[in-house]
């Protein structure tokens, strides 16, 4: 199954804000399926790495309490136009995803 990842990069308060939106169910493992009466297994993004020009700027460890279709934002102060932003993530079921975008 594919989990599309979208990036939005915009200037904010003199810095550059990087917003990451992933279409991901983010199941907590506590929810019970209404039809089968069985618990839906936990399925959530664990680690998201945001890179600028190939260097890590932020590594976010996420838990089950992050909402469905997570929207994660970080800010970098010294990004220039044309800099490459790369985002990659992995979830607890071994799925991976990511996206690239220029500032």
């Amino acid at each position: 199954m594919e989990y599309p990842t979208k990036l939005k990069i915009r200037p904010k308060d003199g810095a550059t804000e990087i917003l990451v939106l992933v279409s991901h169910p983010m199941e907590t493992g506590l929810r019970v399926d209404a039809k089968t009466k069985e618990k839906v297994p936990a399925h959530f993004i664990q680690t998201m790495t945001i890179q600028l020009n190939g260097k890590d700027v932020a590594v976010a460890d996420l838990g089950v309490a992050i909402s469905k279709d997570p929207l994660i934002g970080v800010s970098v102060a010294n990004a220039k136009k044309g800099d490459k932003v790369n985002v990659s993530w992995s979830d607890n079921q071994g799925n991976k995803g990511g996206a690239d975008e220029a500032v």
Binding site: T28, V57, A58, L71, S75
Partner: peptide
């Protein structure tokens, strides 16, 4: 969530349950 920052500005946003 716990975000480790390497030179990024002191900023983090998310949506939570």
């Amino acid at each position: 969530a716990n975000a480790t920052l390497f030179g990024a500005a002191g900023f983090f946003s998310a949506r939570m349950k």
